[in-house]
Design a protein around this nucleic acid. Structure first.
Length: 371
DNA sequence: CACTCGTGGTA
DNA sequence: TTACCAAGAGT
């Protein structure tokens, strides 16, 4: 074999070592992570922290997760503590992070692990995937990261890295089997957890969606998209449908002492189990005026303005009304939230916008932290 | 498979 | 401002 041939990037031989070598030098240090040097010194990851972080990171940025992760481990240091927590307190702590079914399943999962598995997480992919909120990706990620099992981990970052490396012309999600097949051929048996985290770090910091830093990539010598200059064409995806518009009205009742009237949404569906101010249903845009008769009770409702919020599959414009009352009994299934507790309520971001529109500053924490 | 399900940051 | 997107899961 010639010298030149020896320098060619041999994917089956070089992929994992090149990636792991890069990871040892350029890994991110994150609150839930055991760094490679620590792991080499025998530090073992806490499956609870790995699990909690993976649930929070589903479709959510690292930057957004950090503060929530710290808050959760402070309030509930282990899975038994979380299992014993009040569901309402968990929803309050999750408020603002989005995808609230994750919080409901988080609690269910904690209870199963704490009360049915003796407080220990299953250490296999199949065992993990049987738990609520844990799907293909998360089961593989926990198995690999927490238990160092040779699981094939595929997330959005890894899909991007692999489809570029292979010049995969199959659009997602159909390309998934090809991606898994490729990864199974390069997965190292000795450090599967670090391999998975390395792939994700590479996707997050080097092989980024818009302007990948190929000059810094340890895999660039073997990357087909790099050689063709077509990196940003991948991964191929089906075009998205445009979002419909919906409208509605929200009513902020303010008592003399500053308390605000709230109610709880049903457990299932959009913003399930979260709190809100009373309001109309959110319907497709109609020319008719908003009906003030949808208010929780008759009062001098004054229009404050509108707020706009964009969900995953529709955009919403809410007309915000406010009424000031000396005192008024809370209607059935409603309650008056005291002024100093509003910031700690399980209000999703859209509802914080509504309350802020009616009462500027009301959702900002003041004085001592609550709960 | 297709659709539901949040939010905030970025170009 | 619009559009995309970030460690996906459940139905």
């Amino acid at each position: 074999m010639t010298r030149a041939a020896e320098q060619v990037f041999d994917t089956s031989r070089d992929f994992a070592p090149a990636l792991i070598g890069w990871y040892d030098r350029h890994h991110r240090s994150l609150p839930w992570r055991v760094n490679p040097d620590e792991r080499q010194q025998g530090v073992v990851p806490d499956p609870y922290r790995v699990w909690l972080s993976e649930i929070m990171l589903q479709q959510t940025t690292v930057a957004a997760v950090k503060a929530y992760f710290e808050k959760f481990v402070r309030l509930w240091p282990d899975v038994v503590a979380l299992a014993r927590a009040e569901s309402d307190d968990v929803m309050k702590a999750w408020a603002g992070l989005g995808y609230y079914s994750r919080a409901r399943n988080l609690k269910k999962c904690a209870e199963i692990v704490a009360f049915e598995h003796g407080g220990r997480f299953p250490d296999t992919e199949a065992g993990l995937k049987a738990l609520p909120g844990i799907g293909d990706y998360t089961a593989a990620a926990i198995a690999a990261i927490a238990f160092d099992r040779p699981a094939v981990v595929v997330d959005g970052n890894i899909e991007r890295v692999v489809t570029r490396f292979l010049v995969c012309e199959t659009p997602l999600p159909q390309a998934k089997p090809e991606i898994r097949a490729f990864l199974s051929t390069v997965l190292p048996k000795d450090r599967p957890g670090d391999f998975a985290q390395a792939m994700m770090d590479l996707g997050a910091t080097v092989c980024t969606p818009k302007s990948p830093a190929c000059i810094l990539c340890p895999l660039s010598d073997g990357c087909r998209a790099r050689s063709e200059g077509t990196q940003t064409r991948f991964p191929l995806k089906a075009p998205k449908a445009q979002k419909p518009e919906r409208v509605g009205a929200a009513f902020v009742a303010v008592r003399g002492d500053g308390a605000v009237l709230l109610r709880k949404r049903i457990e299932s569906g959009l913003l399930g189990g979260m709190s809100e101010v009373p309001g109309t249903a959110w319907t497709a845009r109609q020319d008719g005026q908003t009906e003030v008769e949808a208010a929780p009770f008759a009062a001098d409702w004054k229009r404050c303005g509108e707020i706009r919020h964009v969900f995953t599959h529709f955009a919403l414009t809410l007309t915000v009304y406010r009424a000031d009352l000396a005192a008024h009994p809370a209607p059935e299934d409603h309650w008056w939230s005291p002024r100093d507790q509003i910031a700690g309520e399980a209000l999703p971001s859209v509802m914080k916008k509504v309350v802020e529109k009616a009462i500027p500053g009301a959702t900002k924490a003041r004085g001592k932290a609550t709960s």
